[in-house]
Every structure is written in C-alpha cells, then in structure tokens.
C-alpha cells in the first residue's frame, strides 16, 4: 500500500457571507489537481485542505482562493 504523504493547510478566507460562496470555493478548489479534500467553514471564515505537495503548495492554494476574489491569507 503506497502511503501518500499529504499536507494539510488552514487558510483564513475573508469575504464569504453565504453558503453559495462556500460551495463555489469548495467546488473550484476541490477540483484542482492534487487537492484531496477541502472543508470551508463560513462561521470560522477559513478553509481546511489536504493536498499532495507534488502538485500544490501553500502559496498556490492561497493564490487560487485569492484569484476567486476572496481575501485569503495563510494563518501560520
């Protein structure tokens, strides 16, 4: 069994006010190559993602959300 090394990242996301914003982010970012799972929380204003480091980096994911028009910052 190949154990895939997954990274997780928590990105705080400003600008979401309703569930449809959550859905569009989960839908679009979830489809990115290497993103295994994504959970966006409206009330805590952040997005939790598990991804394969060979395809994505913290910066590429933060930028992907930023590109959608939401203020994304990595809360390290």
């Amino acid at each position: 069994m190949v154990v895939k090394e997954l990274y997780s990242i928590l990105v705080s996301v400003e600008g979401m006010t309703c569930n449809s914003c959550v859905e569009s982010i989960e839908d679009k970012i979830g489809k990115l190559q290497g993103v295994y799972s994504i959970k966006v929380s409206l009330d805590s204003k952040n997005a939790m993602m598990f991804f394969d480091p060979t395809f994505q980096t913290t910066e590429s994911l933060r930028e992907a959300i930023d590109d959608m028009g939401f203020e994304a910052s990595v809360s390290v």
Binding site: G15, M16, T17, C18, S20, C21, S24, D67, M68, G69, F70, E71
Partner: peptide, 16 residues
Amino acid sequence: MTCEGCSGAVTRVLNK
C-alpha cells in the same frame, strides 16, 4: 450572485 459576499468577490476580481 446570490449575496453580498458574491458581489464582493466580483468587485475584487474586477479590481485585480
């Protein structure tokens, strides 16, 4: 767009 947040996102992508 269904809410304020969505129009905010449109505003930001256009400004960018």
